[in-house]
Amino acid sequence: MGSLRKYAAIFRYTFRDQLAYMPAFITGQIFFVVIIFVFFSLWKVIYGTKVLLAGLSLSQTLWYLTFTETVELSKCRIFQTVQNEIKDGSIAYALNRPYSYYGFQTARAMGESLVKLAPIMVLGFLSALLFVGPLPGYLGALPFGLILIIGGLLLNTLWMLNIGLLAFWTEDVTPFYWIFQKLIFILGGMFFPIDLFPDWLQGTARALPFAYSAYWPALTMVSFSREAFLTGLAGQGIYIALLTLTGAALFRGALRKVHVQGG
């Protein structure tokens, strides 16, 4: 596909463009260190004298949360951009360009997300190190974990893109975003590892798409296994494909609606 070059270029230039926001972004992420500290204090109480909870140590759990937060905080709120472009009609101009709107926005959002990812990874590393000490096997798991973290970012981007496209039908899509975000928080295992869930919920939560944005990447980082990595990767692949197909269908529906009801 020759057009891949196009999207790679869009990604690259957005990445560079967004670098300008890096200093402000890092300053804003002091918040992140505070969250990690709160998690640390909370989980210390939960653990009490126990060494392991559902197979994870306090140190592992805190590192786990650092990674789920990393995916969450690196995301680009692309649904707002899409919603605005639909509302002010400027999407019409994007449709007159030789690229897929969907592909363009994905490349752009990923460019922005990856700019955010680097400092957050570093900050997360430093704060977790400060509170609970080093994570055994960090460097070995990092290449695999990073792949899944980036996969998780892509999943989130596609979710938000699809949510943004709903602006063709509803006034404000933010509530959909909130619902999605809460699903990631709870079912995706962002606030507590899925391993702590009651048994009846664990299997379902692991299979649902939300876990592939948070749980699987973080699990691969803190308790690396080939199976966890491959499960995460395969699941991400499937859900990325499904979300892309959904997005394409939404987009076709949207164009039909514009055709019937006007811009």
């Binding site: 869009i10 230039y13 300008a20």
Partner: peptide
Amino acid sequence: TVFGQKSQLWYHLPARDSFDLLGSIYN
């Protein structure tokens, strides 16, 4: 197309970069 109220240039990059990017977009 030029849409006076919406920029097609990347805000923090020199215009030259946006030109290069548009070159890629237009094959």
